[in-house]
């Protein structure tokens, strides 16, 4: 009995880690893009969806999942970049820009959802996965796909970390996130940094989308939108716009939702996510990585 209980717990933690890995890629992309470009992107979920469909499309042409992931990242990056260059750039400098960005990104999200519905149909499509057995890895029970998702996510997060900390571009990104005017005054090409950040965040979100698609295996045009809730919850728990906070937030939300799903029923996952969110906001209004940030209200 005792052993069984420990097993349930370990399996739930195992699932939680896989979920956390997917949430982390999505939430880090959201937070990175938000911190640098200052646009809360409510069409973020659609970056995941287009990437998932890109992976599906490559698979229809007989290509492997690795190429699918690459295609997903590329598509995510391209869509994010175009979203900024073609649409959002025009609204960034408006005086009351928050409501514009909310309305415009929500609009983009609807357009992409319905566009995908036209292209691929609103019925769910199936991503074929290599059939594999779950096996014990340490204390956890994972399939090969789970392991790939976790490793892929770790690689993506490590790449974000190395870029931010150890490249001139990363330093420029941090400077723009910290104080845009000062960065401009120091001679940084803000416009270029912001465009490239959309590209980078889109690629990371795209990888997250492919990972999400492999974990669901069947999905429709609402795939990313349904994932926006946990993504934002993780980003908020970690402190919106804090890339490392998003990783911690993803771990928290991923584990809590899977554990609550294992012990109660799947319906309680949202309740658990909201409860964690509420608790964190009450104790630490700016998220777990709380740092006072002085910055004019937009």
């Amino acid at each position: 009995m005792e052993a069984h209980r420990v097993n349930v717990l370990l399996h739930a933690i195992g699932f939680g880690l896989v979920t956390a890995a997917i949430i982390a890629t999505s939430a880090v992309a959201f937070s990175l893009q938000y911190a640098v470009t200052d646009v809360p992107n409510f069409a973020h979920g659609e970056l995941l969806t287009v990437a998932a469909y890109a992976a599906y499309e490559t698979q229809q042409h007989g290509l492997g999942l690795a190429i699918g992931a690459a295609a997903g990242a590329t598509t995510g990056a391209a869509v994010a970049y175009l979203m900024y260059r073609l649409v959002l750039r025009g609204f960034v400098w408006k005086s009351s820009r928050l409501v514009y960005t909310v309305a415009v990104t929500a609009g983009i999200s609807l357009i992409i959802q319905n566009g995908l519905g036209i292209l691929f149909g609103n019925a769910e499509v199936t991503l074929n996965l290599p059939s594999d057995q779950a096996r014990h890895v340490g204390p956890f029970l994972w399939t090969q796909t789970d392991i790939t998702v976790i490793l892929g996510s770790l690689v993506a997060l490590a790449t974000v970390h190395l870029t931010l900390r150890h490249t001139p571009f990363g330093r420029a990104q941090r400077a723009v996130a910290d104080n845009r005017e000062l960065a401009r005054a120091s001679g940084l090409r803000i416009e270029r940094v912001i465009s490239l950040t959309w590209l980078m965040a889109g690629a990371v979100a795209g990888l997250g989308g492919v990972a999400l698609a492999t974990s669901r295996s069947t999905f429709g045009p609402l795939l990313g939108n349904s994932f926006l809730l946990v993504t934002l919850a993780a980003a908020i728990v970690g402190g919106v716009g804090r890339v490392y906070g998003a990783m911690i937030g993803a771990l928290t939300i991923g584990l809590v939702t899977e554990l609550s799903g294992a012990y109660f029923n799947a319906g309680y996952k949202q309740v658990a996510a909201l409860a964690v969110l509420t608790l964190v906001l009450l104790v630490r209004p700016s998220g777990i990585l709380q740092v006072q940030r002085t910055r004019a209200e937009a």
Binding site: L229, L232, A233, L274, L277
Partner: peptide, 25 residues
């Protein structure tokens, strides 16, 4: 809960999450 952090965009994101979450519940 949502107003504890006084940043305007933070409030928008938090309320969106609350609306979606409660709707699903």
């Amino acid at each position: 809960v949502a107003l504890r952090n006084l940043r305007a965009d933070y409030f928008a994101i938090v309320t969106l999450v609350i609306a979606e979450g409660t709707q699903q519940i």
